[in-house]
């Protein structure tokens, strides 16, 4: 939980695209094994912040560390220790289940023995052994998402970044997905997840809510509800996003 060693630290992390400041000096810390919810309206800067932490995007200023490495100078070291599941579906539709898992396992440097065992474990865990030679395009979306999650974890990363992992899937699959997230967190993996679903926010250990590139609130779901005297996370979110100053800027 939060009192453990910090695996993600951001200090005034900023990203500007020309005159537009997408992420405006955000500071936060995430502890090992924590499920950290990263919330915000569309265009609030969530994905931009996540892309900086995963080394996909160069920050403009500030400091950030992931798994003990510096985001500015050691992004390649970071990449070996993190898993990432992007908003856009990230496995190959024209490869089979087995080929996808094998490819990513190999890319992360798993050797033949380990790789074989890993593939077997992943397929069994997802109950996909019978579908190992099925093309990914033919799988239902929910299964694809769960496979993408397991694939992102194939190299046992310390931290996994999930960018809206449950977008577009049905409530039952979402629940299954969160069960997987919990299991993984219990094994000690830190989960950094962005989401639009406020019920999912309730599942997180701590939640940060971004508004216009800044972190407007950061606490446990219970703490947030107390602070904003709200019944649900939904209310907390609406109150923050429709806050006094930010009129309609959230789009984009």
């Amino acid at each position: 939980m939060a009192e453990n060693a910090k695996v993600i630290t951001a200090d005034k992390l900023t990203k500007r695209f020309g005159a537009f400041t997408a992420v405006d000096a955000i500071s936060f810390e995430v502890g090992a094994g924590e499920i950290f919810g990263f919330l915000g309206a569309n265009g609030a800067g969530k994905t931009t912040a996540m892309r900086m932490l995963t080394g996909l995007l160069k920050p403009t200023s500030g400091r950030a560390g992931v798994a003990g490495y510096d985001v500015f100078t050691q992004s390649e070291n970071i990449k070996r220790r993190i898993g990432y599941m992007s908003q856009r579906f990230s496995l190959y539709e024209d490869l089979t289940v087995y080929e996808n898992v094998r490819f990513y396992g190999a890319v992360y440097g798993l050797r033949s023995e380990t790789l074989r065992a890993k593939i077997k474990a992943v397929l069994e865990e997802l109950d996909l052994t019978h579908a190992r030679n099925t093309l990914l395009a033919e799988l239902p979306l929910g299964w694809k998402q769960r496979l993408a999650f397991s694939t992102a974890l194939i190299h046992d990363p310390a931290i996994v970044f999930l960018d809206e992992p449950t977008g577009g899937v049905d409530p039952i699959t979402r629940r299954q997905f969160w069960e997987m997230i919990y299991e993984q967190a219990e094994r000690g993996t830190t989960i950094f997840v962005t989401t639009h679903y406020m019920d999912e926010a309730e599942y997180c250990d701590r939640v940060s809510i971004m508004v216009d590139g800044r972190i407007a609130a950061l606490d446990t779901p219970r703490g947030l509800k107390q602070t904003f005297q709200a019944e649900t996370m939904d209310d907390v979110f609406v109150r923050l996003v429709r806050g006094p100053k930010s009129s309609v800027e959230a789009g984009g």
């Binding site: 990230s90 539709e93 890319v107």
Partner: peptide, 14 residues
């Protein structure tokens, strides 16, 4: 276009 390049870019592939 399909977004898989993102996934490759977060791997240690050099």
């Amino acid at each position: 276009e399909s977004g898989t390049i993102e996934q490759l870019n977060v791997t240690p592939i050099n």
